[in-house]
Design a protein around this nucleic acid. Structure first.
Length: 569
RNA sequence: CGGGGUGUGGCGUAGUGGCUAACGCACGUGCUUUGGGAGCACGAGAUCGUGGGUUCGAGUCCCACCGCCCCGACCA
């Protein structure tokens, strides 16, 4: 591709709105353009990278027996009513009416369509297992997009769906995907860690997320260096031992002016935070006011709490809602409260004689014990793992890291097939629901993550497997020295003929512009042809990632450009 | 949805009530230049986010709305 013809534009200055390296560089190098919040166009270079990524994903999906299909973006709402998700999914799903007044949705995922296809196509156990997948646009009206391509509203996703006879088949499909995903991210040049995760809106029994470690990641991961344990903090169990039992002491009120936070309280009373109880308040989607009690040295884990309550949604409670239940924010405890579901963290319940709120401005109670002084509606684990807490598997201190989710795998089970009546006739002559799994990879997010991991201060440095072009030919001083243009044209033509079309900067630009653009654009190999290089016996070859450069004879350069396996300089 | 910020040629910015809205980059033409974002000259390009208001006069002050960014809430 000749740069003189390429639809692109590099920017000298960083666009003001871009903060993350991937966002900044993809914009500056002319790979993408923003149309609206969380809505991007892919320019030719960006589209080529995406296609390279897509092809790698396709090969690995085909490798585990996947069959590519294409399912629609616009679905009749009735389909989503059948699964119950038309009502359970919130405003992140775009809805509209067609001209006939029928309710329609823009698909944010395709379980329903797959289940619909299954009930039409699959009748017998002989047709199972089967796995289908597609690359399709998804629209999710996120409350807030962010981070350039990391979190967008419209994006392309590879989603695959395994369809098995039973749980054992699902396990195999799940393992196949797990292995395929590991190969995919490896090939993409992404170092990922697979973490056990929450099943969220998908439902199902088991899920893993493939995470790229990145400080800008929106998820917090619990990692153990000692044994390799890894989990999303949303689900990671707290393995902190309960303190030794003590005799339960009588409750005693103590004045604690201006001690509305745990830190202030602990300092004022001279007790460790672990000897206090912290109350936080939520309102569930069904209207229940939830009082969550964790030990003062822990934070509430909203995912665990929501799961414990079987609530779809939790929001922080307003002060009036807390007061209405007979509690005093800042000095609150369940003692004397009414009209609230009290959920106590396992560890808080197992820690005796804690300091808790007195429900009186400026006062706390010493020696509060769950069960004796108030009755919890539920005692279960609702606290989040902290950095340095013992690993739930081996006990070594765990580490907390942020991660970006680039892929996930879910065991769905029969939730959708039962709802939609997608069944097969088994060997036993009985009708059984098909057992499904669903597996996603966000392509744009993967591209952004690759840039996050493969860039320097000068620009992008694509791994060869995903680079839009294998090399970047730069002709310098061509106007002055006809041999430069001739040589560059010859190398370009030869590479194209070998099926390895490079980028070719044939523009009438100054050397500085061309060289900085080459580094910004990030092709793995930069080949510079100039009077100087010709005098030195050939062309200068620079490995973008390492910066290693050397002048090579022209026939060697020609072979390098044509060689599919060529990597470095 | 809460909090914060921001909106001026394609990009980055200046312009805190007063003449024809300024600068750098990018863009066009010509000449010069050619290994690290070149020089000179000429030129094109902005209803200053939108609507209302205050004022003799508004890019600038006030109100409302909209867009975008960040933090949080949210989230396969």
């Amino acid at each position: 591709m000749r740069l003189s013809k390429l639809f692109f534009q590099t920017l000298r200055d960083d666009p003001a709105e871009a903060e993350m390296p991937s966002h900044r560089l993809l914009l500056r190098a002319g790979y993408v353009r923003q149309l609206g919040s969380g809505i991007y166009s892919l320019l030719p270079l960006g589209w080529r990278v995406t296609q390279r990524v897509e092809q790698i994903v396709r090969e690995e999906m085909d490798g585990i027996g996947g069959q590519e299909v294409l399912m629609p973006v616009v679905h009749p709402a009735d389909l989503w009513r059948e699964s119950g998700r038309y009502d359970s999914v919130g405003p992140e799903m775009a809805r509209f009416k067609d001209r006939g007044g029928r309710d329609m949705v823009l698909a944010m995922t395709h379980e329903e369509v797959v289940a619909d296809l299954l009930r039409e196509v699959i009748h017998s156990y002989r047709q199972l297992p089967v796995m289908i997948y597609h690359f399709q646009t998804k629209f999710r009206d996120e409350p807030r997009s962010r981070g350039g391509l990391i979190r967008v509203r419209e994006f392309t996703m590879k989603d695959s769906y395994s369809c098995d006879r039973d749980a054992a088949g699902l396990n195999r499909s799940y393992q196949d995907h797990y292995a395929a995903y590991s190969r995919i991210f490896d090939r993409l040049g992404l170092r990922t860690v697979a973490v056990a995760s929450d099943v969220g809106m998908m439902g199902g029994s088991q899920a893993h997320e493939f995470m790229v470690l990145n400080p800008a990641g929106e998820d917090v991961l619990v990692l153990c260096e000692a044994c390799g344990y890894s989990a999303n903090r949303q689900v990671a169990p707290v393995a902190v031992a309960a303190p030794p039992a003590e005799a339960l002491l009588p409750v005693e009120e103590v004045a604690t002016p201006h001690a509305a936070t745990i830190a202030d309280l602990a300092a004022l009373l001279g007790v460790p935070e672990s000897r206090t109880a912290k109350a936080t308040f939520f309102v569930a989607d069904d209207g229940r006011l939830v009082t969550a009690i964790v030990r003062g040295d822990f934070e509430v884990n909203e995912t665990k709490l929501a799961n414990a309550l079987q609530a779809r949604d939790l929001r922080p409670a307003h002060a009036e809602e807390i007061t209405d239940a007979g509690m005093v924010p800042g000095y609150a405890s369940p003692i004397g409260a009414h009209g609230t579901v009290v959920v106590v963290d396992r560890l808080a319940a197992g820690s005796p004689n804690l300091v808790a709120g007195a429900n009186r401005e400026g006062f706390h109670l010493r020696n509060v014990n769950a069960g004796r002084d108030f009755r919890p509606d539920l005692v279960t684990e609702i606290a989040s793992v902290r950095a340095g807490d013992p690993c739930p598997r081996c006990g070594a201190p765990v580490e907390l890291r942020n991660g970006i989710e680039v892929g996930n795998i879910f065991k769905l089970g029969t939730r959708y097939t039962e709802a939609l009546g997608a069944t097969y006739l088994g060997e036993d002559g009985e009708r059984h629901p098909i057992v499904m799994g669903s597996y996603g990879i966000g392509l744009g997010r993967a591209v952004a993550c690759i840039v996050e991991e493969h860039h320097d201060e000068k620009g992008i440095a694509w791994p060869p497997q995903v680079a839009p072009y294998p090399a970047h030919l730069v002709a310098l001083g061509a106007a002055r020295e006809p041999r430069v243009a001739e040589t560059a044209e010859r190398l370009y033509a030869a590479a194209c003929a070998a099926g390895r079309e490079p980028l070719y900067d044939d523009r009438d630009e100054s050397p500085g512009v061309k060289l900085t653009d080459a580094e910004l654009l990030g092709m793995p190999l930069i080949v510079t042809i100039s009077p100087r290089s010709l005098a030195a016996g050939g062309a200068e070859v620079t490995d973008r990632a390492s910066g290693a450069r050397s002048v090579r004879p022209l026939d060697e350069v020609e072979a390098l450009l044509a060689d599919r396996a060529a990597g470095g300089a």
